[in-house]
Design a binder for these strands. Structure first.
Lengths: 218, 218
DNA sequence: GGTCAAATGGACTTCCGGGTCCTACTATTC
DNA sequence: GAATAGTAGGACCCGGAAGTCCATTTGACC
């Protein structure tokens, strides 16, 4: 509970570069560990050790574990959105969407589908346990979907997509296929289901393309 | 570790009806609690209290928490497959698929999208932490998908689906849409994304229908 | 170089949750 | 109805993880 304001610390406090660097190290370590082990299965001692800090520093920068986790939600959300902005911001064609798909699949294939999506797994782990984290995650998903739907809007405006295509719904469907793909790939330890899922979603979007030549209808 | 045989207890042991009922009560309580709070966030004391049993009974029927969780994976898997068999076993038409979709959406809308899929959330929570649970879950997903793909096969064989439809891939895509839908709905506390996701997948399957009348191509 | 707040190290406390154990009750079999 | 094994209650133990505290060092600013 406490402050609604997240950006500004409770007490106006000078933060030195060194302090900021420590905080960053902690978040970075928590991010790595909690990605592979899950949030609840990662202890603060794990984080302390991996970040080469001490208990007092953890509690100097974060009120308690819950606050650290919430900070991680923001941190990871920002990372993902930044990465996705790179791949989606100038999306204007179907082939751009394919490239985006390939990048995600390739990244996930590096660990054979393990661990899934950093946001998706947090969403499942935290949604029923930390309302504030849940709503942040929900907003992050919305922002991510918006990057997609903005791209689809551009495609529709430029005439690449038919006017009856609904960018918002397509983006939601694509996001669900992505998240479900991550989940199945994680369970199977194999990226294949993720590929199939994304291809289905892309095929569906493809069906809204305005065909330049006389290709078959599907 | 231990026996591979799951059905038969380590030692041939008489099991009375009363004992079986207790075991069932424990599993039922664990199922309920872990569905809403998650596996790791549920303590054995919670389970003990909810099942009106005692510590010794827990440890009489299950070696440790991990074994209880694994038993729960089987239990929940059996429940889901049983339920799904009901809805999918005699699937022969697209409208049957729509009915199936509606049932899932309605069930999940009862709690506004909260908690997601009992199997999906376990898959995420356990995949990186218990290899045996992970593989059981993976098999359960496979069996679930097979119920779907079998139905699609029947539709294809009867001429409802075009010959170039790939039941296995369609089933995987549909499952991913379902799981991703659950996830987004859980994060948003709103079933809407689940509906959109499933509708996208169904639309895609619809595009493989052999059209009886002269409907639009999409 | 003196002052003060921030940053840090790490021992220490507390408590919760998993797991053990001992005792007693119940039911089936002979 | 005695014997035996399964069932049950719940106090207790123990480790680990969260969280506290305080002495010390570092660094910024005058």
């Amino acid at each position: 509970m406490g402050d609604e304001q997240v950006a500004a610390p409770t007490k106006q406090r000078r933060i030195s570069q060194r302090g900021a660097a420590t905080r960053e190290r902690i978040l970075e370590a928590a991010n790595r560990l909690m990605f592979v082990r899950g949030v609840n299965a990662t202890t603060l001692d794990d984080v302390r050790e991996a970040s080469q800090t001490s208990k007092s520093q953890l509690y100097h920068h974060f009120a308690d574990k819950q606050e650290l986790v919430r900070a991680l939600v923001r941190y990871r959300g920002a990372l993902v959105l930044q990465r996705e902005r790179g791949g989606l911001e100038r999306l204007r064609s179907f082939s751009g969407l394919v490239r985006w798909r390939n990048a995600l699949v390739q990244a996930n294939s590096l660990n054979n589908g393990r661990h899934g999506c950093g946001l998706g797994s947090m969403a499942i782990e935290l949604s029923d346990q930390d309302e504030q984290a849940r709503s942040m995650l929900s907003e992050t998903f919305a922002a991510w979907e918006k990057l997609i739907s903005d791209g689809l809007h551009r495609m529709r405006d430029s005439g690449a997509l038919r006017p009856d295509a609904d960018p918002e719904k397509l983006a939601t469907g694509l996001m669900a296929a992505l998240q479900g793909g991550y989940l199945l790939a994680n369970a199977a330890h194999d990226v294949a289901p993720m590929e199939v899922a994304l291809d289905m979603a892309l095929d569906h979007i493809k069906s809204f393309l305005v065909k330049p030549s006389g290709e078959p209808t599907r």
